[in-house]
């Protein structure tokens, strides 16, 4: 009985260790591919997808070239030709490319919202941004050496914003687009009525990504400036770049503040309009035109309900 068990175990182990070889389903193995595609194969060990080959334990349909391109038997027998490759990505429709990559990558949590992302909706799929075989980038197989170059390729208006005098330092290399955005799709935003997400990734506390770096603005504070929490930083700031100091919507703070603090309608948390400035504030006096000179803790304060300290 013991010998039977050991034999079965040994057979099982041998079977598990046997390298995947040609099969009736048309898989020929990556060794066959390198015969003609030596240029791709030569540096493929640097590619994250090489892990499936190095492991030696994956089934043929999840190993090396054929894990993405499909069984190559017909391609080999035809002595090449794109149309004989089951999955030739340059010939595939965007949806097909997406599904091919998601066969393995769907389980990655940062990509679970990809099917409802703006990129997918716009037919921008994996191969638009990633170059699997000839990536010049050190990480993530990006199709450009720098991440921002890749994004600017389509988002020319964003390139212009980052060329303004006041901007986050993306061009300078301090930040990357993915510090704030998840190009693979995001969860529903928790600010601004979840309106138009624009692939904005969330900080760990489901807040706007701004507070990842600007942690002093995160709070909680006893006296919150409600729009910061309710509608987010974009209420007053342009996150990419601005012609105005501090990335503000307006060149001076007086008009920025007064456009909300006008007492009109039922705006504000008190349902009676947002309070107008005090009668002691004479706007013709220059010191009252720069509201944050006195209201220094405008994002929130623990000591003063008017954000004075």
């Amino acid at each position: 009985m013991r010998w039977c068990f050991l034999l079965l175990l040994a057979a099982g182990l041998l079977r598990a260790q046997a390298p995947p070889g040609p099969s009736a389903s048309g898989y020929v193995g990556s060794q066959a591919c390198k015969t003609c595609h030596a240029d791709v194969w030569f540096l493929f060990y640097r590619n994250p997808h090489y892990r499936s080959i190095a492991s030696g334990a994956e089934p043929p349909e999840r190993t090396g070239c054929e894990s993405c391109h499909g069984p190559a038997k017909a391609h080999v027998e035809a002595h090449g030709g794109k149309t004989t490759i089951p999955r030739a990505f340059s010939l595939m429709q965007p949806g097909q490319v997406l599904e091919a990559c998601l066969a393995c990558h769907a389980k990655d949590f940062p990509k679970v919202n990809i099917r409802r992302s703006e990129h997918t909706r716009s037919d921008v799929v994996c191969t638009n941004c990633h170059s699997i075989h000839k990536s010049p980038a050190p990480r993530f197989l990006l199709a450009r050496k720098q991440q921002n170059e890749l994004c600017y390729g389509c988002h020319a208006a964003v390139r212009a914003q980052f060329s303004m005098p006041f901007k986050h330092r993306v061009n300078e290399g301090f930040m990357e687009c993915t510090d704030c955005h998840n190009p693979h799709g995001t969860f529903t935003p928790t600010w601004r009525m979840a309106e138009r997400p624009r692939l904005v990734d969330q900080a760990l506390g489901n807040e706007e990504p701004c507070v990842r770096c600007h942690s002093d603005k995160r709070g909680p504070f006893v006296f919150e400036h409600a729009p910061v929490r309710v509608d987010g930083c974009e209420t007053c700031h342009y996150p990419h770049g601005s012609m105005n100091a501090k990335l503000l919507h307006r060149p001076v703070t007086a008009t920025l503040c007064l456009e909300c603090h006008n007492g009109a309608g039922t705006f504000g948390t008190r349902n009676s309009g947002i309070m107008i400035q005090s009668a002691s504030h004479n706007l013709l006096d220059p010191k009252y035109r720069q509201c944050t000179t006195c209201h220094v803790r405008i994002h929130g304060s623990n000591s003063d309900s008017y954000f004075l300290r």
Partner: peptide
């Protein structure tokens, strides 16, 4: 945007 404030010489 409509605004309201106090001002005067």
């Amino acid at each position: 945007g409509g605004i309201a404030f106090f001002a005067g010489l």
